[in-house]
Simulated assay, not measured.
Amino acid sequence: MKTVLFLKSALATLAVAPLLLSMPAQAQAPSPAVAAAVADKTRPEKDTQQDAIRRPAELIAFANIKPGDVVMDVWPGGGYWSRVFSTLVGPKGKVYAYVPAEITGFKSDPLALAKAIPAEPGHGNVEAISYPAAEQPQSDMFNKVDVVWTFENYHDLYDSFMKGADVNAFNQAVFKRLKPGGYYIIVDHAAVAGTGLKHTEDLHRIDLATVKAEVQKAGFVLDGESSVLAIPGDDHLLKVFDPAVRGKTDRFVLRFKKPSR
């Protein structure tokens, strides 16, 4: 009888194991350093007002960013993430605010915005850089970065204003810049499963499976997936700027790792 019960228990465990492995990782508790960086009183109000929908403490904890790290913030926009990363990595760390050359002509002048961050008190470890999205790194940038981060902008690599940028080459360049064991974090608006790249420009959404396949093709291993920004009720056929869903879109969070060998 004991043997039968043991076999039933073992079979039940084997049946559940694949489900557990496929479940997205949940939010993990931020370290004191991460919590302090997010709670920094010098952060602009325009940044802190977005904390409720961006969940910075949980996301940065998931990204495994720590003091002393070198981080590349892809498409930094107004500098929300660059500032938090700057405070977190501290004087021994470095933040590259990377603006793709293809968007430097925007009316908002993204490169000027990135260049203004290092002049702010406490953010002298930030450096604004710009080059074409598909450009491969020079020898001095190989294996230099601990974390490459892109928040709600991966889909934009496919927009017409990117002038046909080679996304596969972009991912390969990210791979080369990262240290062995480094992380590539992608957060983006979810599209209807199976739609691939169909809605990258009109709805500003991208299919989760497509992103996974593209990044893994560049040599990365999928290391984690978080549901901290998941919104089950989001209509994936609505544009992300639609008032009905703006700030409440279903977003996936992926952590890819560059193999150590």
Rank of each mutant, 00 (worst) to 15 (best):
N125R: 10
I129L: 13
S130A: 11
Y131D: 13
A133D: 02
A134N: 06
P137C: 10
D140T: 06
D140F: 13
M141I: 02
N143V: 02
V145L: 04
W149L: 15
F151D: 10
E152T: 06
N153I: 03
L157C: 00
D159L: 10
F161E: 15
K163D: 15
G164N: 01
V167S: 07
N168A: 14
F170I: 01
N171C: 10
K179G: 08
P180Y: 07
Y183E: 07
Y184C: 08
Y184I: 07
Y184E: 08
V187M: 13
D188A: 09
D188W: 09
D188F: 10
V192R: 14
K198T: 05
T200C: 15
T200H: 12
T200G: 13
L203P: 00
I206Y: 12
A209W: 01
K212N: 04
K212S: 00
Q216L: 04
G219W: 06
V221K: 15
L222V: 01
D223E: 15
S226E: 05
V228G: 03
V228E: 10
L229W: 03
P232T: 04
P232R: 06
G233I: 02
D235E: 11
L237W: 12
P243M: 12
V245P: 05
V245D: 09
R246G: 07
K248S: 14
T249Y: 02
T249D: 06
D250N: 12
D250W: 01
R251K: 14
F252A: 02
V253M: 11
V253Q: 07
R255W: 04
F256D: 09
